[in-house]
C-alpha cells in the first residue's frame, strides 16, 4: 500500500529523518512509535506531501506519491485545528470538498458520520461552542469522512475521555475490518498492543526497530510465566523446588494468588504445570510478555546508550 524507501529530511543541516525505510501492507494497522522529536511528524508530513524529502521515495500503491494520491489519505494531525467561528457541518463539508468529494457526496457523507457518531445535534453549533473533546470528535470525523484508503492518525486518543477513547478505538477497529490501511502515531502503548498489527520505532531520526507487535514483544520476553491459583502459597513454593524461581507474587485474597515464575535450565511451561497440578488449584496460567511500553523503553534506551558510546 505504502512504501517508504530511504527517506531523509534535514532542517538547518540537522537530520529530522535519516534513511528511513519501511512498508505498510494493505489492510494492516501500523503503529509509528518514537519519543518526542524523533521525526514521526516529519515523516507523516513527507507522506502527506506537506514537506518535501531531501532524498528517498514514497510510493503509494506502487506509484510515486503525488498530490493526487494524497486525496486518498485521511489525516488527523497531532496539532488539532478547526475554524473556530465555523459551524460543525459547514466545516465538515468544506474539508470533504477539499478532499475531492462533490457537494452532494460530501453532504451524504457528513450526514452519515454525524448520525453514526451521535452528534447530529451539533451540526449548527460553532466550533468555539464545543468542548475540547467534542471538537476532537469533529476533527476525527473530518479526517475520515471522504472514505480514504489509507488513514494516518497522529495521537488519535489525546484529549478524549475514556469513553470516547473506547469509541475511537472501536471506529479504528471497524475501519480495519473494512480493509482500510491505518498508520497510528501514538504514545499510548496499550492501544498499540490492542490495535496495531505491526510497529515501527523511530528514534533520533532513524528507524531502530520494525516488526509485528507480537514479534517485538517476543524479542524481549524473559521466560516469565504467571499462574493464578487458589491454595497455599507455601505448597506452591515447595512445588517449584529448584527447577523454577518465584520472582513476584500478588495476593488476591481468599487464598487466591497470582505468582510470577521464571524457568531454570531447560524447563518449559508444561513442566511448570505438571509440578503444580495437585499442589494448588490452577485457575489460569500464561506467558508474561513485555508490554509495548517495555519494548519502546528498551529500544530507546539501548539506542541512546549506543549513541553515547
Amino acid at each position: 500500500m505504502l512504501s517508504i524507501q530511504n527517506v531523509s529530511k534535514t532542517f538547518h543541516r540537522k537530520f529530522a529523518l535519516d534513511q528511513v525505510s519501511f512498508e505498510i501492507e494493505k489492510g494492516e494497522v501500523l503503529g509509528l512509535l518514537g519519543p518526542n522529536g524523533a521525526g514521526k511528524s516529519t515523516l507523516i508530513r513527507v507522506i502527506n506531501q506537506i514537506v518535501q524529502a531531501n532524498s528517498g521515495v514514497v510510493r503509494f500503491d506502487g506509484e510515486i506519491m503525488t498530490q493526487a494520491h494524497v486525496r486518498k489519505i485521511g489525516y488527523l494531525p497531532e496539532e488539532r485545528g478547526l475554524y473556530k467561528s465555523m459551524k460543525v457541518k459547514d466545516q465538515m463539508l468544506f474539508l470533504a470538498k477539499l478532499r475531492g468529494l462533490s457537494s452532494h457526496a460530501a453532504e451524504i457523507q457528513v450526514n452519515f458520520w454525524l448520525d453514526k457518531m451521535g452528534i447530529t445535534d451539533w451540526s449548527n453549533k460553532r466550533i468555539e461552542q464545543l468542548s475540547k473533546g467534542m471538537a476532537q470528535k469533529v476533527q476525527f470525523i473530518c479526517a475520515i469522512l471522504h472514505d480514504p484508503k489509507f488513514i494516518i492518525l497522529d495521537e488519535p486518543f489525546s484529549g478524549f475521555d475514556p469513553i470516547n477513547v473506547e469509541l475511537i478505538k472501536q471506529e479504528i477497529l471497524e475501519m480495519k475490518a473494512a480493509g482500510k490501511t491505518i498508520m497510528i502515531s501514538t504514545h499510548n502503548m496499550k492501544s498499540v498492543e490492542e490495535i496495531c498489527d505491526r510497529a515501527v520505532l523511530i528514534h533520533q531520526a532513524k528507524k531502530i526497530a520494525e516488526g509485528r507487535v507480537i514479534d517485538l514483544q517476543d524479542e524481549l520476553k524473559t521466560g516469565e510465566y504467571a499462574v493464578k491459583f487458589r491454595g497455599n502459597m507455601i505448597a506452591f513454593v515447595n512445588a517449584l523446588w529448584t527447577d523454577f524461581e518465584l520472582i513476584d507474587k500478588e495476593i488476591l485474597g481468599d487464598d487466591r494468588f497470582i505468582a510470577k515464575v521464571r524457568m531454570r535450565g531447560d524447563q518449559g511451561f508444561e513442566d511448570l504445570l505438571k509440578v503444580l497440578i495437585g499442589q494448588v488449584k490452577i485457575e489460569a496460567a500464561w506467558e508474561v510478555l513485555p508490554t509495548m511500553q517495555d519494548v519502546f523503553m528498551n529500544y530507546v534506551k539501548s539506542n541512546s546508550e549506543g549513541h553515547e558510546k
Binding site: I50, V70, R71, Y75, P77, L82, Y83, R99, C142
Partner: peptide, 16 residues
C-alpha cells in the same frame, strides 16, 4: 490565525 489554531496543517494535507 490559521497558523495559531493549527488548521493549516489539515489544509496543507489536502491542498498544496
Amino acid at each position: 490565525r490559521e497558523k495559531s489554531n493549527r488548521i493549516v496543517e489539515v489544509l496543507l494535507a489536502a491542498v498544496p
